[in-house]
């Protein structure tokens, strides 16, 4: 018998602290599988966020650094510019990347920094107990929007991928989801491409992963994956929003 599936080597043996059914674990695994397949664990440097994934430094077997809240793209910029031969990635939630860290995100993309950004959009601040995020959906009930997000009062949720794709700078901006087997497999392909782009020196590559927070959404893990399909994906459609090299190849 041959092994069809096993835990990737780029994950340590530390058990994930995430809640039951939290897709952060799936997304960690996809990043680790990518490191294994590209043989880059030895030269990868990850930047962990503030958010539920703060302890990502315990889970990835490569070198890791912890950034101040939202500053991961700035920290990654510094590392990559000093050590261009290393493969540098950030792993960030929506509060981290799209709220307190929006400036760092936008400017790293505008500068086309040669880094890889894994952006986990679960439409909530998971770690701090379920407050409204810039990505929380209209009408979504959170700890700080108990009657549902009122867009007249709180503004509209931000579609980060679409917004960044308007910039000239970035190389690759795509949105994927992890709510079923097919989408998880496609998410893996996008994450691998985002690392491959960096190896080839192409520049800023961001994969927005539509995820879930069963605990703070007040759902079972199964219901949370269904809510991704019914409520998240209509507002945050899966798709490739920018792929400069593919566009250039097509134009030739």
């Amino acid at each position: 018998m041959a092994i069809v599936f096993e835990k990737p080597k780029a994950l340590t043996d530390a058990p994930f602290h995430y809640c039951p059914g939290c897709p952060h674990g799936i997304i960690h695994r996809l990043v680790a599988e990518t490191m294994d397949e590209l043989g880059i664990e030895g030269k990868a440097i990850g930047v962990a966020p503030v958010g539920c994934a703060v302890m990502a430094y315990d889970y990835f077997a490569c070198d890791m650094i912890e950034a101040a809240h939202g500053r991961a793209p700035a920290v990654a910029t510094g590392i990559k510019r000093c050590r261009p031969d290393n493969i540098v990635f950030t792993y960030q939630g929506d509060g981290d990347l799209a709220s307190i860290g929006m400036a760092e995100t936008v400017h790293a993309a505008a500068r086309n920094e040669n880094i890889t950004v894994i952006f986990v959009n679960n439409a909530i601040y998971g770690m701090t107990g379920g407050q409204m995020a810039p990505t929380s959906l209209p009408g979504q009930v959170t700890q700080t929007s108990p009657y549902g997000r009122d867009v007249n009062h709180c503004g509209w949720p931000i579609r980060v991928s679409e917004m960044l794709a308007t910039l000239e700078g970035p190389e690759y901006i795509t949105r994927v989801a992890v709510n079923n087997v097919k989408n998880v497999r496609n998410a893996k392909k996008a994450i691998k491409k985002a690392f491959q782009n960096q190896i080839e020196g192409k520049g800023f590559s961001l994969v927005e992963v539509v995820s879930a927070c069963p605990t703070n959404w007040g759902m079972t893990p199964k219901q949370a994956l269904e809510w991704i399909e019914s409520d998240m994906l209509p507002y945050y459609p899966i798709g490739v929003y920018k792929d400069r090299s593919a566009k250039e190849d097509a134009a030739e």
């Binding site: 041959a2 599936f5 990737p8 994930f16 897709p23 674990g25």
Partner: peptide
């Protein structure tokens, strides 16, 4: 499929 969706990466599949 089971291992693909397991968030805790605790399933091994052989064939």
């Amino acid at each position: 499929f089971c291992a693909t969706m397991c968030p805790d990466c605790i399933i091994t599949v052989e064939k």
